[in-house]
Design a binder for these strands. Structure first.
Lengths: 237, 237
DNA sequence: GTAATAGTGTCTATAAGACAGTATCCG
DNA sequence: CGGATACTGTCTTATAGACACTATTAC
């Protein structure tokens, strides 16, 4: 951090705006989905964008992300929130120089999306239509951010217990398997999946109870364990 | 990016300074090492810090990282440069609100480190003394950044061809193995390592030549392949 | 030749995938 | 009972690790 001309004079360094952008992922009706808001102001009015906003001068990046998550998406109490990357090309926002720190958030199920302050509309989009002709046109450089985020989520499912963040506090192994199948877009062998999850230390812990009410043998309930890394990982084919 | 009060008035958003910090890793005398500079100005005068500096108002983050790499470390033509994470706690720099985008750089071998503009000194430190009593005291929140960076490098060696970035353009399998051993701090079985590297599509391509001059059977030379992901990965034990 | 280093072959233990079979619910 | 879903067992195949062995250099 050996800076060339710093000091205490605010005019001595180039002024930037810093924002956080949020990639709020969920599984909605069995579909891996992302929350987007429709812009009603220029630039990019009518296009869809990631929720987000300015970082305040006295708050941390993480705090700004949680605040915007609550304000723009109505989501509170999210445990899993992590940085994706930072995007800062000089021309990414036509109004001014903006550096945006993109964050990933994972929610089990979203309450009815609420439109944020200057969003015309907010809704969940299936991830696999984004970036195709069937998907929305995205504002700014958000198409690239979304592509980076989706790939990151798919990769992290392999070697972290991230999938549990998409489940309710208590969940069954088949529910967890459905998360993997939705995110990866593949079918997994149920018996082998079960054995691998239970054989991975700290991935899930049994609650001792079962979920009944549906036809078929009742499924045992689990909570997430304390592992932060899956050893061995669950491999994407 | 639905921002609440933006517009074209620069006073309408909180002003930040944006910097890049660099984690320049290399293998020096068989030791996994990181370049640090000694600060000679307050704050943290006398402490060691990551090289870095302000992002100019009209350059990209990547460009700023490459420029600082050349200016502060005398390193040019680095191919492998990637974002680590962004650090922006309100009090991380006592002078002003600074958001820093940390980058990882990998160089085969460093020319004699040159002290940067306001660095008293610059040198390579073995990674495994950082964060211990035998290591230097770090400025700002750089201890945490370094810890994050080291872990990222160790992890990426598993599933990407990153290790080749520490080698010269042409290298032997034993040289590549030495990189893994230095970074992970383990000994690897030479025959098995050889088989795994050659069995991973696109990891390395033979040049058809050999390296002679040393005692022992000459080693075949390779160049890095075009793979970006190792399938299967090389697993850390 | 000897010492040193690179590379091959092979055996064994472990893990992954396929899939038959068993358990337990709803109606 | 039948259909549906959860779970267990087992067989086969692929992969990982240990390590004996062969190849080719410098001196």
């Amino acid at each position: 951090m050996t800076r060339t001309p710093p000091g205490y004079d605010p005019s001595a360094y180039p002024p930037f705006a810093v924002t956080v952008d949020l990639l709020v992922f969920t599984i909605h009706d069995g579909t891996f989905s992302l929350l987007l808001v429709e812009r009603d102001a220029e630039p990019f009015a009518g296009r869809w964008a990631l929720p987000g906003g300015f970082v305040q001068i006295d708050e941390s990046l993480d705090h700004a992300a949680r605040r915007e998550l609550a304000e723009e998406a109505g989501v509170t109490g999210v445990e899993v929130l992590e940085q994706l990357a930072t995007y800062g090309d000089p021309d990414r926002d036509p109004r001014m120089r903006v550096v945006s720190v993109a964050h990933l958030a994972f929610v089990p199920e979203l309450p009815a999306p609420t439109a944020g302050t200057d969003a015309a509309d907010a809704r969940l989009w299936p991830v696999d239509v984004l970036g195709t002709r069937r998907g929305p046109k995205l504002a700014f450089d958000h198409a690239r951010i979304v592509a980076d985020g989706v790939e990151r989520v798919r990769a992290k499912l392999e070697y972290t217990p991230l999938a549990t963040a998409f489940c309710a506090e208590e969940f069954t192994i088949p529910e967890l398997r459905a998360v993997y199948e939705a995110v990866w877009g593949v079918e997994l062998d149920a018996p082998n999946f079960q054995r691998k999850v239970l054989g991975t230390d700290g991935f899930v812990v049994p609650t001792g109870t079962e979920r009944t009410g549906a036809p078929g043998r009742p499924a045992r309930l689990y909570r997430r364990g304390d592992a932060t890394l899956l050893q061995p990982p669950l491999r994407r084919v």
